[in-house]
Design a protein around this nucleic acid. Structure first.
Lengths: 163, 163
DNA sequence: TTGAATTTTCAAGATTTATTGAAAGTTTAT
DNA sequence: ATAAACTTTCAATAAATCTTGAAAATTCAA
C-alpha cells in the first residue's frame, strides 16, 4: 500500500473513533495527522492537508492542546505556531481517559449524590433508592480504578490483567 | 427530594451520559426508566412517561434488547410486550463495554492491520510505520484486557486495582 | 379467514452539532 | 506608531443525527 492511501485510512479511522466519543471529527483527524507527522505542523498545513477551514483548524487545535494531546513548538525565526502530537500512546490513552471521566463519570456521581435522599416508602421509591445506590457504588469504584490507572505506567497496567 | 424530581434527574443524567457515547438520548433514557422501574413496562407506558413517539420508543427498545441491557417479559393474558432492564450494574458495564469495543476498538485494529505494510523509506513513511505499529500494539493489549475483564466478576476486577 | 391489537418501518421533518469564512483582535518587526 | 503576519471569534450555514407519525406488516383470538 502507498503511504498516501494508508494516511487517508488512518485519518479516517481516527476521525470515526473520535465521533464515537463525542469528539469532533476534525479534532480527531488533526490529532491523527499530527500523530503520523514526523515534524510539527502549522495551522495552514493542517488546513490544506485536511481541507478544513481556518476557524475549524484553530478551534480544534486549541482543544487538542487543552486535552494535552498536542503541544506547541516555536521554530526559530518563524512567527507562526507549529503543533505536534503526544506520541506516547499510553499517555494519549490516559489523557483521553481523564477527559472522558470528566464528561461521563463526574456528572453521574453528582447526580446520584443529589438524589440519594428520596422521600417515600412505596415500591417505586424503594427501587429508585436501590438502583441509584448501586449506580453510585459502581461509579465510585470506577473512579478509584481510573485514578489508579492514571498514575500507573503502561506495563504495570497490563500486568495487572495478564498474570 | 421528591421521587418525581429525582427520577427526572436520573433520566436526564443518564440521557446525557448516553449522548457522550454516541448512544441516542432516547435509548439511554428508556434504559434509565427501566432501571428504576420496579416492574416491566410496555411501549405505551414508556412513550407516555418520556414523551416520545411510538416509533422512537420501539426502535430504541429493540436497540436495548440487542445490547442485552433490557429483556422482554410476557405477562399472562396480555398481548403486548413488556420490557425490563438488566439491573446488575457490573453486567451493564460489561455489556456496554462489549458494544464499545465493537464500535471503537475493532475498526482501529482492522485499519492498523491494513496499513501495516507501507511502501517508502523516507521520514514520513518511517514515522507512519512506527506510529501505526505502536497504535496496533496498544489496541491489541487493550483488546486482551477487555476480554479478561468481560469474563471477570466485579469483585475480582476491582481487587486487581485495589491491592 | 377476519379484524382488532400491536409492532415495525421509514420518509419527512426537527433538532443538534460541526464547520465556514470573514471580520476583529493580537503580536511583532521596523 | 504602523502594517504585515498571524490568531481568534462568532453568526450564519451546512452536515449529521434523532424523532415523528402514519402506513404497512404482523400476530392472535374468535
Amino acid at each position: 500500500m502507498e503511504l498516501r492511501e494508508a494516511k487517508e485510512n488512518f485519518i479516517q479511522a481516527w476521525g470515526q473513533l473520535g465521533s464515537n466519543w463525542g469528539v469532533s471529527k476534525a479534532m480527531a483527524q488533526i490529532h491523527a495527522l499530527l500523530l503520523i507527522s514526523p515534524k510539527p505542523m502549522s495551522t495552514d498545513e493542517i488546513m490544506k492537508e485536511l481541507n478544513i477551514s481556518r476557524g475549524n483548524a484553530n478551534m480544534n487545535v486549541r482543544e487538542l492542546l487543552s486535552w494535552g494531546l498536542a503541544y506547541k513548538k516555536f521554530l526559530p525565526g518563524e512567527r507562526r505556531e507549529y503543533f505536534f502530537a503526544e506520541k506516547d500512546i499510553w499517555d494519549v490513552a490516559k489523557k483521553v481517559g481523564r477527559e472522558r471521566k470528566k464528561r461521563e463519570l463526574e456528572p453521574v456521581l453528582k447526580m446520584v449524590n443529589e438524589v440519594k435522599d428520596i422521600k417515600g416508602r412505596n415500591k417505586h421509591a424503594q427501587e429508585f433508592r436501590k438502583v441509584s445506590k448501586e449506580v453510585g457504588k459502581f461509579a465510585r469504584k470506577t473512579e478509584t480504578a481510573l485514578d489508579l490507572i492514571s498514575r500507573a505506567n503502561e506495563s504495570t497496567f497490563f500486568k495487572w490483567f495478564m498474570k
